[in-house]
């Protein structure tokens, strides 16, 4: 399997778990021209990112093409414990997807 497009880290401090994630994705806005061909690069972006904690969705991010290339997302939640599973998955407008799981540190 190819290397995951998602890098993430989850850290517990006090009772708050902070999750930070970076996704590798072109996030083309559909407005930029290919310099060689002069044609517009088609729109290609992540629509949805689902962030789960032990199988329950904590944050569901719905994005437009206005999110920067290689998106960064960070959020916090309460009720996490060390060793809990965080899973992050994304879906783009072309039907591409990827997911990644990690443990809270």
């Amino acid at each position: 399997m190819a290397k995951s497009t998602i890098r993430a880290r989850a850290r517990l401090k006090g009772d708050i778990t902070t999750v930070k994630t970076l996704i590798t994705h072109r996030m083309d806005s559909g407005r930029i021209k290919n310099k060689k061909t002069g044609k517009l690069i088609p729109i290609y972006f992540i629509k949805e990112v689902t962030c789960q904690h032990n199988g329950k969705t904590t944050v569901l991010a719905q994005w437009g093409p206005t999110i920067s290339k290689n998106p960064y997302l960070s959020y916090q939640f309460t009720g996490g414990a060390r060793g809990d599973t965080i899973s992050i998955s994304w879906l783009d407008n072309e039907g591409g997807k990827d997911s990644y799981s990690l443990k809270v540190k």
């Binding site: 708050i16 969705t57 904590t58 944050v59 569901l60 719905q62 994005w63 916090q76 939640f77 309460t78």
Partner: peptide, 10 residues
Amino acid sequence: ANFEMAPNAK
């Protein structure tokens, strides 16, 4: 962006 937050999300 729109983020849908669960009750335990800060």
